[in-house]
């Protein structure tokens, strides 16, 4: 039996929200596959440890950048820095996101726009800049992290659900637009994954969520990262415009 070994050497992977959760797990998996990494987070300190882990795994110095993903000017300048350092971009993982629950009637204006800006507008702007870099060599893969909530909705998550459903709509349109340039765009829709985001809910809610998962357990960030790598790699070279659930059979 032959083992398939993913190899991303000479490729450049841009990951937002890299310091924690799914972004961090994806970064470590990409490092094992010898990728050049662009790791982004709101604070540079939060990337210090990851940078060292990546170096230890691949020996390749990642480009660590601190910026707010919703700052559209910063997205552009990040694109320029990637160009200056690596001269190319192969993969974008649009992973950064925030979760703030609120019932209708109690959604504040700042919360509404912050969530839409971080979870949706930033994803679009990153695709806009990344696709221009990818156009240069007519090849690329964009992976947008949506959520099961963006597909089926949930109580208290009107804003979050809207932002994540928006990510799916943006993914489907971008996939059609960029296919002639050989740039693939797909989304993943994680269910209940063991991240700080999931651990921020009450113990009762946590148990309730577990009960809704057919596989009977919370997902590991690595299990989501595996799908990200699949979509980034040539294993999925004919896959575009898809939304892949990574949820262990979760029913909300």
């Amino acid at each position: 039996m032959s083992m398939i070994k993913l190899d991303f050497s000479e490729q450049v992977i841009w990951i937002t929200g890299a310091s924690r959760g799914i972004g961090r797990a994806a970064a470590l998996l990409f490092a094992q596959a010898n990728a050049n990494l662009v790791l982004c987070s709101r604070s540079i300190e939060s990337l210090t440890q990851l940078r060292e882990e990546v170096l230890a795994i691949s020996g390749l110095e990642p480009l660590c950048l601190a910026y707010d993903v919703a700052d559209l000017k910063a997205v552009k300048s990040t694109g320029q820095q990637i160009l200056a350092k690596f001269k190319r971009l192969d993969v974008l993982v649009n992973n950064a996101g925030i979760l703030q629950d609120a019932l209708l009637g109690m959604i504040s204006e700042p919360q509404l726009f912050q969530t839409l800006n971080v979870n949706l507008a930033a994803v679009i702007e990153h695709m806009q800049i990344a696709s221009r870099l990818m156009q240069r060599h007519k090849k690329g893969s964009i992976i947008n992290v949506s959520s099961i909530i963006g597909r089926v909705g949930n109580v208290g998550q009107v804003v979050y659900g809207a932002s994540k459903a928006g990510v799916i709509g943006a993914t489907l349109s971008a996939a059609k637009e960029l296919a002639p340039s050989n740039i693939r765009v797909n989304a993943i829709a994680p269910g209940f994954i063991d991240t700080e985001m999931a651990r921020s809910i009450s113990p009762e809610k946590f148990q309730e969520r577990l009960n809704s998962i057919k596989m009977g357990r919370i997902g590991d960030p690595q299990e989501v990262a595996g799908v990200v790598l699949f979509l980034a790699s040539s294993l999925s070279s004919y896959v575009t415009g898809q939304v892949i659930g990574v949820d262990g059979g979760m029913l909300i």
Partner: peptide, 11 residues
């Protein structure tokens, strides 16, 4: 569509 290819080539 050609416009984005043109932009990439100019850049």
């Amino acid at each position: 569509i050609m416009h984005m290819s043109l932009i990439a080539e100019i850049e």
